[in-house]
């Protein structure tokens, strides 16, 4: 039995193994991806982003419970940063999960130096979860508070989570979160200032361009579960709205383009390096770049040769 067909049969161990394989870009990955190809692209992918500690994981857990109760098959991907020094990572998002057992499949991913708040393997991981039958995938980004725009490209719906407190908000608004959110959540609404934060957010959003979907601003207390049902409904509403509007519903096209570019880049680079090595040009060129005798961009141009024109 191949790993791909085991995943399609719902074997959780096979899914876990395959996630490791795509995460490490092992050679078997291509075969698996080919096997599951016809079984992807069906899930609603919900990105959850926001500054560290705003309650993303708690919210993810409560949303998982909410959608499970609605009969959904839920998968979770949670990305945490890797240490730039050791390459290791502390993946702590499971701490907030309320023992949902095998009913929810959750995988923690280390960013491994990938910028943008996600891991490089994220799109592949989403496909694997879809092949395993998950039809609602919650994707928690690194809590960096900025430059998490990547999530837009991977998710059908992006949730931006903020907490009460003016100082933080102004900073967050500056970091461009207004543009990426489809649904805004003011979490920790048990704390003072939640209403004001929500009001300010709404006001700033109303200044933006008029779009077919106006992002709602919802208050929540993830810890107690207050407001979760409304967020769940907003996610489904947004999905329905993007299906009506071709401008919004293009995650799969964006994704396809990115995949194609990546695959093409990998192949071209590999071929160019192989050719340069065979011609005995690779090491001298590396040496030249290392000794600053040549600029890397210039050296690359030299190697790319034919393809460049």
């Amino acid at each position: 039995m191949s790993l791909g067909s085991d995943i399609l049969r719902g074997d959780r161990r096979a899914l876990a193994r395959a996630l490791t394989i795509v995460e490490n870009q092992l050679p078997e990955a291509e075969e698996i991806v080919r096997e599951i190809a016809g079984h992807t692209g069906r899930a609603i992918v919900v990105g959850i982003t926001g500054a560290p500690g705003v309650g993303k994981s708690t919210l993810v857990d409560r949303l998982a419970g909410h959608f499970l109760a609605l009969g959904r098959q839920v998968g979770i991907l949670a990305v945490d940063p890797s240490s730039p020094f050791s390459g290791g990572a502390l993946l702590g998002d499971r701490v907030r999960m309320e023992g949902r057992g095998s009913g929810v499949f959750m995988r923690s991913l280390a960013a491994r130096g990938h910028l943008g708040g996600l891991a490089r393997a994220t799109p592949r991981a989403i496909q694997l979860l879809e092949a395993a039958g998950k039809d609602l995938i919650l994707l928690e980004t690194v809590g960096a508070g900025q430059s998490e725009v990547d999530v837009m490209g991977y998710a059908d719906t992006t949730l931006v989570v903020v907490v009460p407190g003016l100082g933080d908000d102004v900073q967050a608004f500056k970091a461009g979160i207004l543009e990426i959110g489809d649904v805004f959540v003011v979490n920790k609404a048990d704390r003072p200032g939640a209403d004001q934060t929500a009001r300010e957010l709404r006001q700033m959003l109303s200044l933006g361009p008029h779009k077919p979907w106006q992002p709602p601003v919802l208050s929540a207390q993830a810890q107690s579960g207050a407001g979760i049902a409304e967020i769940g409904q907003a996610i489904l509403d947004h999905k329905a709205s993007s299906e009506r509007d071709p401008e919004v519903g293009t995650r799969h096209v964006r994704e396809a383009e990115r995949f194609l570019r990546q695959a093409l880049a990998d192949r071209l680079v590999e071929a160019a390096v192989r050719r340069a090595k065979a011609a005995g040009r690779w090491l001298p060129l590396v040496e030249d770049v290392a000794r600053r005798r040549k600029d890397p961009v210039w050296a690359a141009k030299e190697l790319a040769g034919g393809e460049e024109r």
């Binding site: 959780r12 161990r13 876990a16 193994r17 996630l19 490791t20 890797s82 050791s86 390459g87 290791g88 990572a89 502390l90 993946l91 702590g92 499971r94 701490v95 907030r96 023992g99 057992g101 095998s102 499949f105 959750m106 995988r107 923690s108 280390a110």
Partner: peptide
């Protein structure tokens, strides 16, 4: 340099093994 999944307090053996399985 390792990737460490921390699960927090009060886990049942079932929860730990399920997490170990999912996290491979």
């Amino acid at each position: 340099g390792m990737e460490v999944i921390y699960t927090g307090l009060h886990q049942t053996p079932e929860e730990i093994v399920e997490a170990a399985l999912q996290e491979d």
